[in-house]
Protein backbone atom coordinates (compact mmCIF):
# COMPACT_ATOMS: atom_id res chain seq x y z
CA UNK A 1 0.00 0.00 0.00
CA UNK A 2 1.50 3.30 -1.04
CA UNK A 3 0.15 6.82 -1.21
CA UNK A 4 -0.98 6.33 -4.81
CA UNK A 5 -3.22 3.40 -3.93
CA UNK A 6 -4.66 5.25 -0.96
CA UNK A 7 -5.55 8.21 -3.15
CA UNK A 8 -7.20 5.86 -5.66
CA UNK A 9 -9.19 4.26 -2.82
CA UNK A 10 -10.35 7.72 -1.70
CA UNK A 11 -11.65 8.27 -5.22
CA UNK A 12 -13.47 4.93 -5.23
CA UNK A 13 -14.94 5.58 -1.79
CA UNK A 14 -16.07 9.10 -2.67
CA UNK A 15 -17.91 8.00 -5.79
CA UNK A 16 -19.71 5.21 -3.91
CA UNK A 17 -20.46 7.41 -0.87
CA UNK A 18 -21.75 10.52 -2.61
CA UNK A 19 -23.60 8.66 -5.34
CA UNK A 20 -25.20 6.53 -2.66
CA UNK A 21 -26.19 9.53 -0.56
CA UNK A 22 -27.78 11.23 -3.55
CA UNK A 23 -29.77 8.12 -4.47
CA UNK A 24 -30.77 7.37 -0.90
CA UNK A 25 -32.15 10.85 -0.49
CA UNK A 26 -33.86 10.76 -3.89
CA UNK A 27 -35.48 7.37 -3.39
CA UNK A 28 -36.57 8.43 0.08
CA UNK A 29 -38.16 11.66 -1.12
CA UNK A 30 -39.98 9.77 -3.88
CA UNK A 31 -40.86 6.98 -1.47
CA UNK A 32 -42.59 9.35 0.92
CA UNK A 33 -44.79 10.59 -1.91
CA UNK A 34 -45.36 7.05 -3.21
CA UNK A 35 -46.44 5.77 0.20
CA UNK A 36 -48.86 8.66 0.53
CA UNK A 37 -50.38 7.92 -2.86
CA UNK A 38 -50.63 4.18 -2.13
CA UNK A 39 -52.51 4.84 1.11
CA UNK A 40 -55.35 6.26 -0.96
CA UNK A 41 -54.91 4.39 -4.24
CA UNK A 42 -53.22 1.04 -3.65
CA UNK A 43 -53.72 -0.05 -7.25
CA UNK A 44 -51.24 2.61 -8.42
CA UNK A 45 -48.44 0.78 -6.60
CA UNK A 46 -46.86 -0.53 -9.81
CA UNK A 47 -46.83 2.85 -11.49
CA UNK A 48 -45.42 4.82 -8.59
CA UNK A 49 -42.84 2.13 -7.84
CA UNK A 50 -41.26 2.67 -11.26
CA UNK A 51 -41.02 6.39 -10.51
CA UNK A 52 -39.64 5.77 -7.05
CA UNK A 53 -36.91 3.50 -8.41
CA UNK A 54 -35.66 6.08 -10.92
CA UNK A 55 -33.45 8.14 -8.56
CA UNK A 56 -31.79 4.88 -7.51
CA UNK A 57 -29.45 4.79 -10.49
CA UNK A 58 -26.98 7.42 -9.25
CA UNK A 59 -25.98 5.11 -6.42
CA UNK A 60 -25.46 2.34 -8.95
CA UNK A 61 -23.33 4.59 -11.15
CA UNK A 62 -21.21 5.64 -8.16
CA UNK A 63 -20.79 2.01 -7.17
CA UNK A 64 -19.91 1.16 -10.76
CA UNK A 65 -17.08 3.71 -10.86
CA UNK A 66 -15.87 2.56 -7.45
CA UNK A 67 -15.63 -1.01 -8.71
CA UNK A 68 -13.97 0.06 -11.94
CA UNK A 69 -11.32 1.96 -9.97
CA UNK A 70 -10.78 -1.08 -7.75
CA UNK A 71 -10.48 -3.34 -10.79
CA UNK A 72 -8.11 -1.02 -12.62
CA UNK A 73 -5.82 -0.60 -9.63
CA UNK A 74 -5.86 -4.32 -8.95
CA UNK A 75 -7.17 -3.88 -5.40
CA UNK A 76 -10.11 -6.22 -5.95
CA UNK A 77 -7.92 -9.05 -7.16
CA UNK A 78 -5.66 -8.71 -4.11
CA UNK A 79 -2.55 -7.44 -5.87
CA UNK A 80 -2.63 -3.63 -5.83
CA UNK A 81 -0.60 -2.03 -8.62
CA UNK A 82 2.39 0.12 -7.74
CA UNK A 83 0.83 3.53 -8.39
CA UNK A 84 2.67 6.84 -8.35
CA UNK A 85 1.11 9.69 -6.39
CA UNK A 86 0.12 11.34 -9.65
CA UNK A 87 -1.61 8.20 -10.90
CA UNK A 88 -3.41 7.79 -7.58
CA UNK A 89 -4.53 11.41 -7.76
CA UNK A 90 -5.82 10.78 -11.28
CA UNK A 91 -7.97 7.90 -10.03
CA UNK A 92 -9.30 10.17 -7.28
CA UNK A 93 -10.17 12.80 -9.87
CA UNK A 94 -11.83 10.15 -12.05
CA UNK A 95 -14.23 9.43 -9.19
CA UNK A 96 -15.21 13.08 -8.67
CA UNK A 97 -17.66 13.73 -11.56
CA UNK A 98 -20.04 10.93 -10.63
CA UNK A 99 -19.50 11.59 -6.93
CA UNK A 100 -20.65 15.20 -7.02
CA UNK A 101 -23.13 15.11 -9.89
CA UNK A 102 -24.50 11.78 -8.68
CA UNK A 103 -25.20 13.26 -5.27
CA UNK A 104 -26.81 16.43 -6.62
CA UNK A 105 -28.80 14.87 -9.41
CA UNK A 106 -29.97 12.03 -7.15
CA UNK A 107 -31.48 14.53 -4.74
CA UNK A 108 -33.09 16.64 -7.44
CA UNK A 109 -34.30 13.64 -9.38
CA UNK A 110 -35.96 12.45 -6.19
CA UNK A 111 -37.85 15.72 -5.94
CA UNK A 112 -38.94 15.50 -9.57
CA UNK A 113 -39.95 11.88 -9.04
CA UNK A 114 -42.03 12.84 -6.00
CA UNK A 115 -43.80 15.54 -8.03
CA UNK A 116 -44.39 13.05 -10.87
CA UNK A 117 -45.80 10.53 -8.39
CA UNK A 118 -48.29 13.12 -7.19
CA UNK A 119 -49.17 13.87 -10.82
CA UNK A 120 -49.70 10.15 -11.41
CA UNK A 121 -52.00 10.06 -8.40
CA UNK A 122 -54.22 12.69 -9.97
CA UNK A 123 -54.07 11.26 -13.48
CA UNK A 124 -52.73 7.69 -13.71
CA UNK A 125 -52.52 7.93 -17.50
CA UNK A 126 -49.86 10.62 -17.29
CA UNK A 127 -47.27 8.42 -15.59
CA UNK A 128 -45.28 8.13 -18.83
CA UNK A 129 -44.93 11.91 -18.93
CA UNK A 130 -43.77 11.83 -15.33
CA UNK A 131 -41.21 9.16 -16.13
CA UNK A 132 -39.86 11.26 -19.00
CA UNK A 133 -39.62 14.38 -16.88
CA UNK A 134 -37.83 12.49 -14.16
CA UNK A 135 -35.47 10.81 -16.61
CA UNK A 136 -34.40 14.22 -17.93
CA UNK A 137 -32.71 14.97 -14.61
CA UNK A 138 -30.70 11.79 -14.88
CA UNK A 139 -29.05 12.94 -18.11
CA UNK A 140 -26.46 14.84 -16.12
CA UNK A 141 -25.63 11.88 -13.93
CA UNK A 142 -25.10 9.85 -17.09
CA UNK A 143 -22.85 12.52 -18.57
CA UNK A 144 -20.87 12.62 -15.31
CA UNK A 145 -20.63 8.83 -15.37
CA UNK A 146 -19.25 9.03 -18.89
CA UNK A 147 -16.76 11.70 -17.88
CA UNK A 148 -15.64 9.50 -14.99
CA UNK A 149 -15.29 6.47 -17.26
CA UNK A 150 -13.38 8.39 -19.91
CA UNK A 151 -10.98 9.86 -17.34
CA UNK A 152 -10.57 6.42 -15.81
CA UNK A 153 -9.70 4.75 -19.08
CA UNK A 154 -7.41 7.62 -20.03
CA UNK A 155 -5.12 7.12 -17.02
CA UNK A 156 -1.75 5.75 -18.07
Amino acid sequence: MNTGIVLALVGAALSAILGGIGSAYGVQAAGVAAAGVCSEKPDLFGKVLVLQALPGTQGIYGFLIAVLILVQTGVISGSPADLTVMQGLSYLIAGLPIAFVGCGSGIYQGKTAAASILMTAKDPDSSAKGITMTALVETYAILALLASILILFGIR
Partner: peptide, 8 residues
Protein backbone atom coordinates in the same frame (compact mmCIF):
# COMPACT_ATOMS: atom_id res chain seq x y z
CA UNK B 1 -26.45 7.05 -22.39
CA UNK B 2 -26.53 3.83 -24.39
CA UNK B 3 -22.87 3.34 -23.50
CA UNK B 4 -23.46 4.24 -19.86
CA UNK B 5 -26.38 1.85 -19.43
CA UNK B 6 -24.68 -0.96 -21.30
CA UNK B 7 -21.59 -0.53 -19.10
CA UNK B 8 -23.71 -0.37 -15.95
Amino acid sequence: RILALSLA
